[in-house]
Amino acid sequence: MLQVLLTGLATGAIYGLVAMGYAVVYYVTRVINFATGQLLMASIMVTTVLSMHGTPVALALAAGVATSTLGGVVVYFLAVRPVLRFNRLSFAWLVSTLGVGIILESLAAVIWGTSSLPFPNLLNGRDVSILGAALTWQQILTIGIALFTVVGFEIFRKRTLFGKIGMAISSDPDIASAIGANVTSYAVVAFALGGLLVGVAGILVGPLSFANPYLGESFGISGFVALMIGGIEQPAASMGGGLILGVLTILANTYINAQASDWFPFVVVMVVLLVTPNGVFMSGGAIKGIWRRFQTSRVEAKS
């Protein structure tokens, strides 16, 4: 059982990072970047190709993450900013960010071919035994980075001026200009952060997924589902959603059958949505809200 939990957390940490990639961007700009999965792919591809040509691994990893970070900014300027300038409430960015994703995918295939390439293997090696469960160093690193990311992000959001203004913009985009904040710079940072997060996810999952131009779609969807489980209002919550999705997937794989990971997480998600439509970790907490409603009805019943 511990094995399932740990493996699930390691898998889910990746989904969570992707979900956070979506969430950070949404938080500040109210936009869902449909090229997020392809940015993850970009970091894996760049790392792989550089290392295949002899670049030292550490440098290749850094280059990969830098690529996806920069890629996020490019998506903003190319596909999001012009659309939002026209109409802040339009959903047209769905089409334009999707377009960027399509281009990234096929461009990668044109440059590097359609077949999978090996990712530089750092830490996979042998497993470590933790209380009877086996985990690779890569997986341990993944879980560690995920926790660090969540904590780091929350500190950034709540303690720094930048983060606080980000929160304000998130709850009321009109405020930004009123308080003299440059909306563009906040958006750029948000998109860059989103790219950074999925870039890190990429270099963590690379040894398992190998490098292929077509990776983006499935990681993008998994991250999206994780985002919805955790709740979209808070980026930190989406990591929780990812971890839950990861554990559910491995649980289903282990205890039901290998195909159950197809449907089991979704059924759970549907149930979750029916009970807490805004995600498990919605602001204030689902539990608090239910408790409050319970209290109100008890007060009414008494009077």
């Binding site: 990776l215 491995i250 794989n253 195909q259």
Partner: peptide
């Protein structure tokens, strides 16, 4: 085993 056809790799086969 369900495979991920778009990328050709499934997350894990540990179980």
């Amino acid at each position: 085993i369900s495979e991920d056809w778009s990328s050709g790799s499934t997350a894990t086969l540990v179980s």
